[in-house]
Design a protein around this nucleic acid. Structure first.
Lengths: 220, 220
DNA sequence: AACCAATATATTGTATATAAAAATTTCATC
DNA sequence: GATGAAATTTTTATATACAATATATTGGTT
């Protein structure tokens, strides 16, 4: 009998986990507004759980920088400072560039194909001006490269920074331009040629350019 | 009346905070061994608090990668893989290099003096072969630069990676060589001259070199 | 003796109760 | 009416009680 390979742990989803995911989503998409005061009991009732998993989630969200807890006083959603993009993107660009360098030696044919397919889907979304979908696909594209770098520290840093980028997107409409499509193509080509250094350089530019575009589009 | 400028919140130290700090320290210094199974109740008794702050601390430690929780099963201290230095230092080097670049334009006289003094203390510790103190002072040196970069995302990323470096130090005796002293001097000089790019480059090398030194010294 | 099932035990996750602190309101005094 | 102190309310932090799940143990059957 071929044992069905579902031995990826069927770990039950805990109340804490689902509460965390939901609260994070609410903060990212603005359901929970910046500055809003968070009340344990209200949230617990809203999610149908007790205060314990709520409080545990809030503590994790504090580490991520989505809420700030003033012990004994209050817990509130952090502000969304548009200018934080200036602080957010340089480290993210550095991590993505490093990922590209590390990924370069390990890339096999299938990954290249996956990158190309993802970039095609990205191009379609941008052309349709479906920027929300485009952002998600763009994340996928970069995630493939980060995964290839096979470095758990980078992985977790990028994941954390990405959630903040996503929040800024929801609040201020980050725009992904057609230029990204070509840059992605360049990166794929350079990776295929084994030129990790140059690919990393384009990758960095790809991210840092978003800072300027974000500022030039003050049209909320 | 000049109000005494102690309006930095006198926030009371919560049980959770002290438990977290203590547990982290125990994991870093090896009191809690890699792979060791952690029991809520035991830890609670040992620290004289209830399970709640212990569990909250463990969850934060999981985010940091010091423990792994298997919901419903067990919580254990993560392993210390010597080879993880290969994964740990490249992103840390990248963040430190970026910090150097960002700090360069903002440096005033006092900070330069502080860097020089810190490096002098570092040199003394290395020469005395007091490597534990040297590591701490080395952290101070780099922290000054990270602080000058004034970027909260970088700040928190570096803080997190540094704790893992410290753990590796305790478990495998990372050695800081005399070469670091000179590199620090170079960095200070280049920063004084306003050459942030070159300073960042030396900074990166300073960190990446530690990988080789770590490997060459297999003598536990 | 080996294996399996059923029970017991231990350990975790969640809910609730209690304690401590801060914010707010009330009331008295100037 | 304004100010300040005391008391009340609200909210947070911690402890404990309860429930659910996994592990260990026991005992029976082959």
């Amino acid at each position: 009998m071929p044992i069905p390979s579902e031995h990826q742990r069927p770990t039950r989803v805990t109340a804490k986990e689902s509460a965390f995911t939901q609260l994070q989503q609410w903060i990212i998409d603005g359901t929970l507004q910046p500055g809003e005061k968070l009340n344990d009991i209200e949230l617990a009732e809203a999610l149908g759980v007790s205060r314990t998993p709520i409080r545990e989630s809030l503590q994790l969200l504090e580490v991520q920088g989505f809420v700030k807890m003033y012990p004994g006083k209050a817990t509130q959603v952090t502000e969304v400072d548009k200018e934080s993009i200036n602080d957010l993107l340089p480290p993210l660009a550095a991590m993505q560039a490093l990922s590209t360098e590390l990924a370069a030696p390990n890339l096999d044919e299938n990954v290249i194909i996956e990158l190309e397919e993802t970039n095609n889907r990205f191009a379609k979304a941008v052309q349709k001006e479906d920027y929300f979908t485009a952002l998600k696909i763009d994340e996928d594209f970069h995630q493939i490269i980060v995964d290839q770098a096979a470095n758990k520290y980078i992985h977790s840093i990028v994941a954390s920074l990405q959630t903040h980028v996503r929040r800024l997107f929801f609040h201020n409409s980050i725009i992904l331009t057609e230029k990204s499509i070509d840059e992605h193509k360049d990166i794929i080509r350079l990776l295929t040629e084994g030129n990790g250094e140059k690919a990393a350089s384009i990758m960095r530019e790809n991210w840092l350019r978003a800072i300027d575009e974000f500022h030039s589009k003050k049209t909320d």
